[in-house]
């Protein structure tokens, strides 16, 4: 906006703090909102990406180990079908020890009966102990599918042993360290966090810069309207919207003019009354 009259500090006239002191606070507010949204979005996206990876990765690991368990199960069940009792299958100990030797990540493989008593275990010291009732029930509940569980920092994958009668005779458990999965997905977590942080930094700056530009224009416009108002009211003249001024600015110019008109008119009226008053 441009004033026809002389310029002076409008703010002084209005008795307000300088417009400079509030400059940018609008942009600050909106920045806060936008950057929060950015943080939220990126964290959520990273979270989902990570968890998806984690679930695919751990289910892949689990399916591999359940395949190992399945191999053992087939061998054990074949022997069961020959009519031997589970606890008599001495060769099972050999089978599970061979499978464990193949993969250093396997912590233990154990075979237990329907009561949960461990009959064979790669950790021979554990033979004769009992597995938790949860695992016994899990084996009974899932007559064909593998089941998973966690135990402290170990992951467990198990399969039930089913005899010719279709009855669950016990189960096989394979334990592998949770740390194995954590190690596998840990790299991604670090990488994701780093990327997220970098992107957050860069785009926060961009967001803030963009908002300062956007609201800078708003605030310049407001400032210029404010100055015009002050000038016109304190010193007179006319507010003429700049070329390309929007309808609001035109209306504001009218307002300024009308205000000036009103103050002028009231002043004149006051003076006139004063004259009349003094005249008498």
């Amino acid at each position: 906006m441009r004033q026809d009259g002389q310029t002076s500090l409008a703010a002084g006239f209005l008795g307000l703090p300088s417009a400079r002191s509030v400059r940018g606070s609008l942009a600050r507010k909106v920045s806060l909102a936008l950057v929060s949204i950015l943080v939220f979005t990126l964290l959520l996206a990273a979270f989902f990406a990570y968890y998806k990876f984690e679930s695919v990765y751990s289910s892949l690991v689990q399916s591999r180990y359940s395949f190992v368990v399945f191999t053992v199960k087939k061998k054990v069940e074949d022997s069961l079908n020959l009519g031997l009792a589970l606890r008599q299958l001495r060769q099972v100990q050999e089978i599970i020890e061979r499978e464990k030797a193949r993969d250093s990540q396997i912590l233990s493989i154990q075979v237990y009966d329907a009561q949960g008593e461990v009959l064979f275990d790669t950790d021979r010291g554990a033979i004769g102990t009992f597995v938790g009732s949860g695992l016994v029930d899990a084996a009974k509940a899932s007559s064909a599918q593998s089941f998973g569980a966690t135990d402290d920092d170990m992951l467990i994958v198990g399969l039930p042993l089913v005899n010719t009668l279709g009855k669950v005779e016990g189960g096989i458990l394979l334990r592998y360290p949770q740390a194995y999965v954590e190690h596998g997905v840990g790299g991604l977590l670090i990488q994701l966090s780093r990327t997220t942080a970098e992107l957050l930094a860069v785009f926060s700056v961009l967001a803030v810069a963009g908002l300062y530009i956007l609201f800078g224009r708003v605030s310049r416009k407001l400032g210029s309207m404010e100055r015009t108002l002050g000038t016109v009211l304190s010193e007179g003249g006319q507010a003429v919207p700049e070329a390309g001024g929007d309808p609001f600015e035109e209306r504001f110019a009218e307002f300024v003019t009308k205000s000036r008109e009103a103050t002028d008119h009231i002043r004149e009226a006051t003076e006139e009354i004063g004259r009349l008053d003094r005249l008498a």
Partner: peptide
Amino acid sequence: YRYYTVGQLTAY
């Protein structure tokens, strides 16, 4: 059907 299995089923 092995007799052993049949015996088990009978026990079942």
